[in-house]
Computed example of a mutant assay.
Amino acid sequence: MNMRPPPAPVDWLIAAVMAAFAFAEELGGRTMVPDRGQPLWWLVAATATAGLVLLRRRAPFTVLVVYSLVSAASFAYVGGVSFAWQFYTQLVLLFTLVSELPPRDPRTVAGLAATALFIGSMMFTTAPPAGLGDVAVVMGMVSISAGAGFSVHRNRQIAVQARKHGELLAREAVTEERTRIARELHDMVAHSVSVMVMQTGAARLMLRPDQLTERETLVVVEEAGREAVEELRRVVGLLRADSDEDGLAPQPSLARLEDLVEQVRDAGLDVELTVEGEPGPIPPGLELSAYRIIQEALANTLRHAGPTRAAVTVSHRPHSLFLEVVDEGSRDGRTRAEGAGHGLVGMRERVALFHGRLATGPLPGGGYAVRATLPLGTRFFGGTAVRRGSGEAAV
């Protein structure tokens, strides 16, 4: 069952204000009809109107049309009534209608026609008839109400389009980064399979002439391995863009961090590299991801903070690899928005690939920190175990 949410607190407030204004005006005798006294049903109408104001967002068209027709009928029946709260209520309902519905919606056009009926009934049933000045004031207030509603509707549409555009860009960034990661991992897998094929061939050549069964088995393995390498090369060719390298350059690793730090220093970033613990066996894919995370973190520091100081820490722990890149922030006072940019997208994807944890955010004393924990010995891929936030990462 689709349950609609209750009216927002601001709607209750507006309805209460309109009801209080209507009661004050009615009890003050402003709508007193000559020779008829103060009819009680005006107070009932004021209460019903407050209810319509409360529900106006749920059915803006229905509420406005009902109110306009009932009000026009009451104006014709009573005649000569001096009022204010009825008119202000109409302005509120008109604003809600044009702010909730598109300008070219038939209901919007019908709502404007109902408002015109309300205004006409109000102007022609008063005694004495409204003058040009009164007409100008009324039309001006109606125009302001409708114009404000149209402006709110347009701004909402712009905000929705901006949000959808941002989501599209974010999805494209994730897709591009995943393609890049897949391309690098395919290169590594292709290299590993090639080595396996070569070792299988070497083992086949070492067999004795009478080991026919073993020889046939290794031949099958070699052929399957060569076919796998060819398929991997085709896949890599599809993933690699025209502007990419040809794939012959060696994949970066943590052993090349010093070269990366020197490059960043040449770009104006004062970097201090610290390596803690004894390096153990690290899966090639995880090591490549660790290098890319540090590379992207330093690139983000240069991009957002400019020339400043940064510290890179690589900690080899018994069951995990901990990475930390901390900078002192921009020297000109610039701040970096949390989660902004495509660089963090790549970090999250690489950390999630190995079910690691990622913490990013500004530091209390200034600067920005990127902390990643990559578990060693991971034999599966995928997953979304990534944590975002500021402060220390839980390790």
Rank of each mutant, 00 (worst) to 15 (best):
F87L: 10
P103Q: 02
T217N: 13
G329R: 02
R215I: 10
D134F: 10
M123T: 06
T373K: 12
T373M: 15
V275I: 12
A385Y: 01
P284I: 03
R180V: 13
V174A: 07
V174Q: 09
R331Q: 10
G268M: 03
R292C: 08
V78S: 12
W42V: 12
M139P: 01
N155V: 06
P252S: 00
Q211G: 13
L323N: 05
A359I: 15
T200I: 00
A267D: 15
F118N: 03
L254I: 00
L254W: 08
M3I: 07
A369Y: 03
T125S: 11
I282Y: 00
E100D: 14
S151R: 07
R350P: 04
G377R: 06
R292Q: 11
L298P: 03
L117W: 08
L257G: 09
N155L: 15
G346K: 11
P103L: 14
Y77C: 10
R317K: 04
P250W: 02
P279V: 01
G147E: 08
L168E: 14
T125K: 03
H191Q: 15
V236I: 14
D134A: 09
L13Q: 12
Q157N: 07
Q161G: 14
A173I: 04
E338D: 10
V386G: 08
G367W: 02
E296A: 09
F124D: 06
L112T: 03
P375Y: 01
P250D: 00
M123I: 13
V78A: 08
A369T: 13
F95K: 07
S121I: 03
A159E: 06
E272V: 12
T200S: 13
G382T: 05
D244L: 06
L27D: 07
E276N: 12
L238I: 10
